[in-house]
């Protein structure tokens, strides 16, 4: 029995909790991609760097708050800075729409042109973020770091294995749930949200029924900015902020969006967790886990690892390929909002 509990704790500590937090972060990022895809109809390559930009503004404001002595008790100060960061990011995105994407919408350019334009925007954001804050790691987590420490858990329960829960992990999950519920309420219940869904379903019909496209585009960018900033900040609080890693998140996020069904918000969330948990479970070495569960004589010699951690990020891509081959529309049927 003790062995079983040990195994369970081990699994929770190394697979379940990190996977849950990472999945929530990916889900928020994938939501932003999928929203843009559903309404403006292009895959945004600049999304990773949008997250980096949003996080950067939050980091800067956090530093300012810290310097004038504002803090948020046991919670990270960054949460206070979040609304300002969202506003700035949304402004930047709307500006980029005015300067770049609007033109291609007007001339009805093929979606692939929009995708390429987003690559250009990605370059610019890349440069801006590095220019302002530099390419280095920034740690902006303050407040209480742990809800439960591994050693404290061991002492309290008498188990061999520790269980650590970081406050940033709990925050991530809670904020993700709140944000996603708010988004769904907005899309399903409010007038603007409904008009956005209508626009996504059938643009021409929506225009005929008097929906203002400018308004839809504007609100979309604001939502995308909010989602990207929150996802970026949560990721940064949990791990750390470094512009380059945000660029690398692009692939898992896209994978999540496509796996779930592009343009489908629930799908994006589902996809986020599928990708996150596959990455963690496939690369985890089950040796210790099995040693607890199996009788001693069957205890494994090898690491019992399906795939070396070197290929961790290949996992998201393999899932993507499998889904594309087996069910090209994604797990939930995509392209509806």
């Amino acid at each position: 029995m003790i062995d079983f509990l040990n195994a369970l704790t081990l699994f929770a500590n190394f697979v379940l909790i990190p996977g849950l937090a990472y999945g929530s972060q990916l889900a928020l990022g994938a939501l932003g991609i999928t929203l843009l895809y559903g309404i403006l109809r292009f895959g945004n390559f600049a999304h990773g760097d949008t997250m980096a930009f949003g996080t950067m503004t939050v980091v800067l404001i956090t530093w300012y708050f810290q310097s004038i002595g504002i803090s948020f008790g046991p919670l990270p100060t960054a949460l206070l800075a979040l609304p300002f960061g969202i506003a700035l990011t949304a402004l930047f995105l709307i500006l980029s729409d005015k300067l770049v994407y609007k033109h291609y919408r007007e001339v009805k350019a093929p979606p692939i042109r929009m995708v390429m334009a987003s690559v250009g925007v990605m370059f610019v954001m890349n440069g801006v973020v590095r220019f302002i804050i530099g390419p280095n790691d920034q740690n902006f987590m303050d407040g209480e770091r742990f809800i439960m420490k591994a050693r404290a858990f061991k002492n309290a329960t008498g188990l061999n294995e520790g269980l650590a829960i970081k406050s940033s992990q709990l925050l991530t999950v809670v904020i993700a749930i709140v944000l996603v519920s708010a988004l769904f309420w907005f899309l399903n219940k409010t007038r603007t949200g409904k008009s956005m869904r209508a626009f996504s379903d059938n643009e021409d019909l929506a225009l005929l029924s008097g929906i203002s496209p400018q308004r839809v585009v504007l609100v979309t960018w604001i939502l995308v900015g909010a989602l990207a900033t929150v996802a970026g900040v949560l990721y940064g609080l949990d791990k750390s902020f470094k512009p380059f890693t945000y660029f690398q998140l692009l692939l898992p996020m896209f994978a999540a969006a496509i796996v779930g069904g592009v343009g489908h918000p629930v799908g994006a969330i589902l996809g986020g967790f599928v990708v996150a948990f596959s990455e963690v479970t496939v690369t985890y070495a089950y040796k210790k886990f099995l040693t607890y569960l199996l009788p001693t004589e069957y205890a494994p010699d090898g690491l019992m690892q399906l795939l070396s951690t070197d290929y961790k990020f290949a996992v998201s891509f393999i899932i993507l390929v499998v889904v594309l081959l087996v069910k090209p529309t994604g797990l939930l049927k995509g392209k509806v909002i």
Partner: peptide, 21 residues
């Protein structure tokens, strides 16, 4: 002065977007 090198990416992006547009 330290950030000068990051202007490279920014310039490339602007050149690309301008030409495309």
């Amino acid at each position: 002065l330290d950030s000068a090198q990051h202007m490279r990416l920014f310039i490339m992006g602007v050149v690309m977007l301008t030409v495309m547009r």
